[in-house]
Amino acid sequence: MMASSGLSIGSLADRTGLAVSAIRYYETQGLIEPWRNSGGQRRFHRADIRRLSFIMIAQKFGFSLPEIGGLLKALPGGRTPTPQDWARISEGFRAHLDQRIETLQQLRNNLDGCIGCGCLSLPNCALYNPQDQAATKGKGPRFLMGDHSETENRS
């Protein structure tokens, strides 16, 4: 196949390991932008192989499709991203991954104790979260999200 004719959706699926339906879904989400040849068939840039690989990796890192779309907007359409393009995006990945690692470490370190959800269901909650003080900080597992109990702050 000539480079100017682009890749068929089947070729793109073979190269990326994605199902054709997944590629079509990413197209509907605006993450890739094929064109139509004179026969009306979708054609993709070779750079879409890397774009789709990037989407798969970013999803494994926990990024949502809207977040991934925002990152992809910074990449050039129709050409393979340069090392400088990837370096710029990887900076944001690092910050996101560092936050996830910190959250996972907090979860690991608190598995046998209160996770700060404000449920008052554990005997330790009377110590870590008296009168459900965590609820005043907002919804969700507040201590896991980085808040500290008042008893910790006094220590």
Rank of each mutant, 00 (worst) to 15 (best):
residue 64 S to T: 04
residue 21 S to G: 12
residue 103 T to Y: 10
residue 139 K to S: 09
residue 38 S to C: 14
residue 42 R to V: 12
residue 91 E to C: 08
residue 87 A to D: 05
residue 67 E to R: 00
residue 62 G to D: 07
residue 107 L to G: 05
residue 118 G to T: 08
residue 49 I to P: 00
residue 15 R to Y: 05
residue 118 G to S: 13
residue 122 L to A: 01
residue 68 I to Q: 00
residue 63 F to V: 05
residue 49 I to L: 13
residue 150 E to Y: 05
residue 34 P to W: 03
residue 84 Q to F: 03
residue 20 V to H: 06
residue 143 F to P: 00
residue 98 D to A: 06
residue 29 Q to S: 10
residue 39 G to S: 12
residue 27 E to N: 04
residue 47 A to M: 02
residue 76 P to M: 09
residue 36 R to T: 06
residue 155 S to M: 11
residue 39 G to L: 14
residue 38 S to H: 15
residue 104 L to S: 10
residue 100 R to D: 15
residue 136 T to W: 13
residue 146 G to I: 09
residue 14 D to Y: 14
residue 54 F to K: 09
residue 43 R to I: 06
residue 21 S to K: 12
residue 35 W to Q: 04
residue 29 Q to M: 15
residue 77 G to A: 11
residue 13 A to E: 07
residue 25 Y to L: 05
residue 9 I to L: 04
residue 5 S to I: 01
residue 141 P to T: 11
residue 137 K to C: 03
residue 37 N to K: 10
residue 13 A to G: 10
residue 105 Q to E: 12
residue 99 Q to D: 10
residue 147 D to R: 12
residue 26 Y to H: 02
residue 134 A to K: 00
residue 139 K to F: 11
residue 102 E to H: 05
residue 148 H to N: 08
residue 37 N to C: 07
residue 34 P to S: 09
residue 77 G to H: 11
residue 16 T to K: 05
residue 152 E to M: 10
residue 94 R to M: 12
residue 32 I to D: 02
residue 68 I to M: 01
residue 130 P to M: 15
residue 14 D to P: 09
residue 16 T to L: 09
residue 17 G to R: 10
residue 29 Q to Y: 14
residue 11 S to G: 07
residue 75 L to N: 00
residue 145 M to W: 07
residue 2 M to R: 03
residue 10 G to V: 14
residue 83 P to K: 02
residue 119 C to E: 12
residue 47 A to D: 01
residue 65 L to K: 03
residue 45 H to Y: 02
residue 6 G to K: 00
residue 140 G to N: 01
residue 37 N to I: 13
residue 93 F to S: 04
residue 128 Y to P: 02
residue 134 A to P: 03
residue 33 E to Y: 11
residue 96 H to S: 06
residue 142 R to E: 08
residue 85 D to K: 00
residue 69 G to E: 07
residue 126 A to T: 06
residue 57 I to D: 01
residue 105 Q to S: 12
residue 3 A to I: 13
residue 154 R to N: 12
residue 124 N to K: 15
residue 16 T to P: 02
residue 153 N to F: 13
residue 140 G to I: 00
residue 32 I to H: 03
residue 31 L to C: 09
residue 94 R to A: 13
residue 37 N to R: 13
residue 41 Q to E: 10
residue 113 G to C: 14
residue 68 I to S: 02
residue 107 L to E: 04
residue 148 H to G: 05
residue 27 E to P: 02
residue 126 A to K: 09
residue 106 Q to D: 09
residue 112 D to S: 04
residue 64 S to C: 06
residue 140 G to R: 03
residue 88 R to P: 02
residue 56 M to S: 08
residue 155 S to I: 12
residue 115 I to P: 04
residue 144 L to F: 09
residue 114 C to L: 08
residue 66 P to K: 12
